[in-house]
């Protein structure tokens, strides 16, 4: 019984939250990895793209709510999501036309492109703040729980509570669908294959008659979509605040690099490595320890790191990977 209680506590406080967070990071890292492998630079504006996309989704959600449109037990934001994707992807295409296209034409070095993306990041940063402000916004509506603590107790009779929030389920289900769609697109469609070819060997892709402008455009559209979905899921699960999204850039890049940047499977695996490390290291294990080791009550919280230091986890993993295995878990390109 004590062991079961420990298991429930771990599931409730570590496995469920880390899985949801991991799925959000994975979607973010997929966007970063896609831009890296096809456009060949690290896109520092990705966090703020997520913020912008989520901002648009929130505005449309408010519009729907004002009109009395709802999605039943599901959050209205899911209805607003397709519109947010369209707006964000349009912004991506516009940014490419105004900014990145020029640097591609002059064949700027990757590091120059990174700096350009930092500039874009600041602009998008400001744009998001003009659009929706700097405050924390909760925009999740619909049913809050799939299983709440009381239902759990009635179901199992266990004293240790377990809750499953609907946003966590939505996050994981949406992430699975999106990843499936992305892999189907890259692996089965002509356009998707041409994007992989372009990523593999740009010169040969050009020789084969693959249109680079089309590849670039489709890449930005998908990146905009991934960023908006990842940002909206994160915002639903936690809350929206523009600055938090900027901070997410670090764990997202860590995820992409841990998995092997340029490799989509790696981005997903990396997302979960980072999320489980972050949640596992900042969780206070006192309760679990008390269940597992009889007759011993630890004095402290048995927390390895304060939650304030959660970004240090990503940063440490990032550095260790870059030193010891720069290609990442799944053999990405060497950064």
């Amino acid at each position: 019984m004590e062991f079961l209680n420990a298991l429930v506590a771990i599931t409730n406080y570590v496995i469920i939250p880390a899985t949801a967070y991991g799925a959000q990071l994975a979607l973010g890292a997929l966007g970063v990895t896609l831009v890296y492998s096809i456009l060949r630079f690290s896109n520092f504006a990705h966090g703020d793209t997520m913020a912008f996309g989520t901002g648009v989704v929130i505005l449309i959600t408010w519009g729907f709510q004002a009109m009395g449109i709802s999605f039943g037990p599901l959050p209205t934001a899911l209805l607003a999501l397709p519109f947010g994707i369209v707006v964000t992807s349009a912004l991506m295409l516009g940014t490419d036309k105004v900014v990145y296209q020029y640097y591609r034409k002059v064949k700027a070095a990757p590091v120059v492109m990174v700096m350009v993306s930092v500039g874009v990041m600041f602009i998008m940063n400001a744009l998001t703040r003009f659009l929706i402000g700097v405050d924390q916004i909760n925009f999740a509506d619909g049913a809050r729980f799939v299983i709440n603590a009381r239902q759990w107790r009635e179901m199992t009779g266990m004293s240790e509570p377990l809750t499953l929030r609907s946003t966590q389920v939505i996050t994981v289900v949406t992430a699975i669908l999106v990843v499936w769609a992305l892999f189907w697109f890259l692996g089965r469609t002509r356009t998707g294959k041409s994007m992989r070819a372009f990523s593999d060997n740009e010169d040969l892709a050009l020789l084969s008659g693959i249109d680079p402008n089309r590849v670039v455009a489709v890449t930005w559209i998908i990146t905009g979509a991934l960023a908006t979905i990842a940002g909206t899921l994160y915002g639903l699960d936690k809350s929206f605040k523009a600055f938090t999204y900027f901070q997410l850039l670090l764990p997202i890049f860590a995820s992409a690099i841990v998995g092997g940047i340029g490799n989509p499977v790696g981005a997903i695996a990396g997302g979960f490595v980072i999320s489980f490390s972050e949640v596992g290291l900042t969780y206070a294990w006192k309760k679990v320890v008390t269940y597992l080791i009889p007759n011993w009550e630890p004095d402290g919280l048995v927390q390895l790191l304060s939650t304030d230091y959660k970004y240090a986890v990503s940063f440490t993993i990032l550095i260790l990977v870059l030193i010891f295995k720069p290609t990442g878990l799944f053999k990405g390109k060497i950064v």
Binding site: R190, K193, S194, R196, A197, D200, N201, D203, L204, A205, L207, S208, G209, I210
Partner: peptide, 29 residues
């Protein structure tokens, strides 16, 4: 290429992470 020329470069002449079949498919793009 559209006029009927085919070119095989000396190095980097395949798409390494794509299957043989996909390589041929891209040739016919």
């Amino acid at each position: 290429v559209k006029k009927g020329m085919g070119f095989v470069p000396q190095v980097n002449n395949v798409f390494p992470t794509m299957s043989v079949e996909e390589n041929l498919e891209m040739g016919a793009f």
